[in-house]
Write a protein that binds this DNA or RNA. Structure first.
Length: 462
RNA sequence: GGCGGCGUAGCCAAGUGGUAAGGCAGAGGUCUGCAAAACCUCUAUUCCCCAGUUCGAGUCUGGGCGCCGCCUCCA
């Protein structure tokens, strides 16, 4: 099945056709590094990583870029609050981001450009816009002239006239049109600044992505992704900037926007105070569980989060882990495939898994397929055994791995523990259940749970 | 005011024309020295409401109700 992607620009699912056959260039708007990301932010970053992994799984050679916005009002304010420099804050928060990302199974992008490392590219980009008649200098700032770009509003479905009504126009601004936005902001006292042809200052928010895409991926990309809230104005502005300089071919062929994580039916956000800092959540829940939870709904639909969400996700994921553990156990306990057992039609699960993902990255449906595989494997195991247990196990782990979730099975214990387990087996065999149960309790205190099965004792870490 | 989205069992959530995936919770059963895991059965005659199109609609069209998001920094 061929990949279909919902393109925000077209408002419909489209067959995915990259610019260059077999290759995909993808850009995701990354975090503004002023504090730790929350669970809602994580949803989008997991989405980007998931799409990237799925594209690879489907055979594409992917180049994935995710930026860091490291100069911004919030960063300046936060650094002042903490009484540290902007650089110190930025370095710390980037480090924190990677720590969080790693816990969630988010692979490092091929490139993580920072705005401050691309000031030259940004200045050049603005220069090109001015030269092309799409931007003008006003006061110490440079603005994008939306009226020079007739297609403005195409991504968000907004009309310029309608935008005027809702926009807040600050008095004294040198804008020609209320929807014009700053490409370069003149320096204010105490803020970071760089020299430019228009005086000292710093980049506006939107220009960074246009410039970094051009610098890192060339003027055109296949997929541009980000959270729903970036659709307007950020991506609309970005599109206007980039496409002003590349008439004809589109800047991004597919725009992908992820829905929010909801709390009490409302968007989780800093300003509403209903957010959960990811690093706090990760103290209580394994990153695999959080990632699985975030993938449990289709990315374009809001996902509800409440106090029970991660607990039920834990139980659910344990179901898959237990199935893997059971398969692993029969393989090691019997030390040979059960030739007489049932032969599961594994290709069927993989095909369904793949077509779910090829249908606009439907991870929720894909997980459903893995649960069915787990159930069928467990059922077969309980009856006649499975002839292709080894393949079933590796398939389940491989497909979960496509989604970035590890279904690991613990394989080794130290000798002391092994000896205890053996002693308990002897005791059980001798019907000395008092000793056997004491050993079980002892091991439980060490975090090891024993499971008695027809194929002998199995253990797992609690 | 402009633009957009959502409404499927107690909860989470797939499904965009062919007769309701999956997970959690719950009930009963099987297995079991115990425990755990697992399996089986049951839990939406029905997808917010009304009308329409169709042989057939959760899925398409029109209207209504409710909720949410963006338009200001925001994943």
């Amino acid at each position: 099945m061929q990949l279909q992607i919902y393109n925000t620009l077209k408002r419909e699912k489209e067959l995915f056709v990259p610019r260059i056959p077999g290759k995909v260039s993808m850009y995701l708007c990354g975090p503004t590094v002023y504090n730790r990301i929350h669970l809602g932010n994580a949803r989008t970053f997991v989405l980007g990583d998931t799409i990237r992994r799925i594209l690879s799984f489907l055979g594409y050679d992917v180049t994935y870029v995710q930026n860091f916005t490291d100069v911004d009002d919030k960063i300046i304010v936060r650094a002042a609050e903490l009484n540290i420099t902007v650089d110190e804050l930025v370095e710390q928060e980037i480090k924190n981001y990677f720590e969080d990302a790693k816990a969630l199974g988010i692979l490092p992008a091929d490139k993580h450009p920072r705005v401050t490392a691309h000031i030259g590219d940004i200045i050049a980009f603005i220069g090109d816009l001015i030269a092309g008649g799409f931007a003008y200098v006003g006061g110490g700032d440079v603005f994008y002239d939306v009226q020079k770009f007739p297609a403005y509003g195409q991504l968000s479905g907004q009309k310029l006239d309608d935008l005027v009504m809702g926009s807040r126009v600050e008095a004294g601004e040198a804008k020609r049109h209320p929807a014009d936005f700053a490409l370069w902001k003149g320096a204010k006292p105490g803020e970071p600044f760089w020299d430019s042809p228009w005086g000292k200052g710093r980049p506006g928010w939107h220009i960074e992505c246009s410039a970094m895409v051009r610098a890192e991926l060339g003027g055109h990309i296949d997929i541009h992704a980000g959270g729903m809230d970036l659709q307007f104005p950020h991506h609309e502005n970005e599109l206007a900037q980039s496409e002003a300089l590349c008439s004809g071919e589109p800047f991004a062929r597919y725009w992908v926007h992820g829905a929010f994580l909801n709390v009490n039916d409302g968007k989780m956000s800093k300003s509403q105070g209903n957010f959960f800092i990811l690093s706090d959540v990760l103290k209580r829940y394994d990153g695999n569980i959080v990632r699985f939870f975030l993938q449990s709904a289709h990315y374009r639909k809001p996902l509800s989060f409440d106090a029970t969400s991660l607990d039920s996700a834990t139980v659910a994921l344990n179901r898959l882990r237990n199935a893997c553990g059971a398969l692993e156990h029969v393989l090691t306990a019997l030390n040979a495939p059960q030739a007489a057992g049932e032969m599961l039609n594994l290709d069927q699960y993989e095909a369904r898994f793949k077509s779910a993902l090829a249908d606009d990255f439907n991870t929720a449906e894909a997980w459903g397929v893995l649960f069915e595989l787990a159930r069928d494997a467990n059922a077969a195991l309980a009856l006649k055994g499975i002839a292709n247990a080894e393949l079933a196990l590796s398939l389940m782990q491989r497909l979960a791995g496509v989604l970035g979730v590890e279904l690991t099975v613990d394989r080794s214990l130290d000798e002391e523990i092994e000896a205890l387990i053996a002693r308990r087996e002897e005791a059980r065999f001798a019907r000395d259940y008092w000793t056997a149960d004491n050993i079980r309790v002892l091991l439980a205190e060490l975090g090891i749970e024993l499971l008695d099965t027809p194929q002998g004792v199995r253990w797992k870490l609690k």
